[in-house]
Design a protein around this nucleic acid. Structure first.
Lengths: 177, 177
DNA sequence: AAAGATTGACTGGTCAATCTTT
DNA sequence: AAAGATTGACCAGTCAATCTTT
């Protein structure tokens, strides 16, 4: 696994021959950085203002809502919501305190715990979703052509694949569980 | 949801006519969310591990390095680095403590302060940049075709424009200063 | 008053240490 | 021991209050 790559001389911090980006590449990269720096915070603002949850918590609720019996083992949910287990645990604590989620010990092996969306949580999600979707449309979907959005999705999948490569835990889809 | 369907109808807090996303739109949007959640943290990890700075601090250094006399008024630098003035002030404090930046009161009007990249800061940036660019290539530029990257840039600019609309302060480019 | 900058309390996240169960 | 989950210390960012200068 960890052997073989051609550039393994990490002890030597000087690996030259890193070609700089072309003017076009730089421009497009900077544009992407702009989105990375501004879009998530903008979505966070809307959700916190109108619903009192942040983006990650929203995705936890949404993830649970689509699961069988509205429940998932925490480590699976962490993968689905794209966060660390620790981050998830903190988030679930907050959501539990609000009454939208509850923890339940699994009967099965190991020290497994599942989070389950309560009825109040489902109601909350249904109340919150339209405003969130509206914002996603306003900031993303509606400002792009269908072709742009499609290419954006393709590119995003390629980037995510590269980003998660070497992190086998984070790679698997929730459908693997 | 322009029409109330048979599913659980809660209170009438329905703000109607928010059309849900099509399957394709949803898929592409989720892909973009994946990038938003993972790419910035991945870049942060590389920079912190190899250089002891986060992405925002890196952009502050990079922004200053390209400015005339390697100095910029803080409020301008905040726009360039895409962060709040408060965030920038905290960051500059850290960078100043490390010796990479120094604050200087402006002679000019108002209570203006400029941040100036020191020689040590410039050296730091030159030391750090290759590793960062390598990571940007590995995770983004090299996994996309030229056409994909170009469309991605276009889309990103459209999204940023929508996101910053209504925030006139954040809109202006640093070239306006 | 208004613009620019700073500060501190608070929040959410990471990391490492710990606990629990197989 | 190993997997899953939790916890707490620590850090970076936000928000609102404040300070400084015109």
């Amino acid at each position: 696994m960890s052997h073989v790559s051609a550039d393994t001389s990490l002890a030597d911090t000087r690996e030259d021959d890193v070609p700089w980006l072309s003017a076009d590449q730089l421009r497009d990269w900077q544009a992407l950085m702009g989105v990375l720096m501004t879009l998530l915070p903008a979505l966070d603002v809307q959700l916190k203002r109108d619903a009192g949850v942040n983006v990650f918590e929203y995705h936890v609720l949404a993830g649970l809502s689509g699961a069988p019996d509205r429940a998932l083992v925490l480590s699976d949910l962490a993968v689905l919501a794209q966060g660390s287990l620790s981050r998830l645990s903190h988030a679930v604590t907050r959501l539990e305190r609000a009454g939208w989620v509850e923890r339940r010990d699994c009967v099965e092996p190991g020290r497994r715990v599942e989070a389950r969306l309560t009825d109040a949580g489902m109601a909350k999600l249904e109340e919150v979703a339209p405003g969130h979707v509206r914002e996603v449309r306003r900031l993303v979907v509606d400002v792009l052509t269908a072709a742009q959005l499609s290419t954006l999705g393709e590119a995003a999948r390629a980037i995510t694949a590269a980003t998660l490569a070497g992190d086998p835990e984070a790679c698997r889809d929730v459908s693997d569980c």
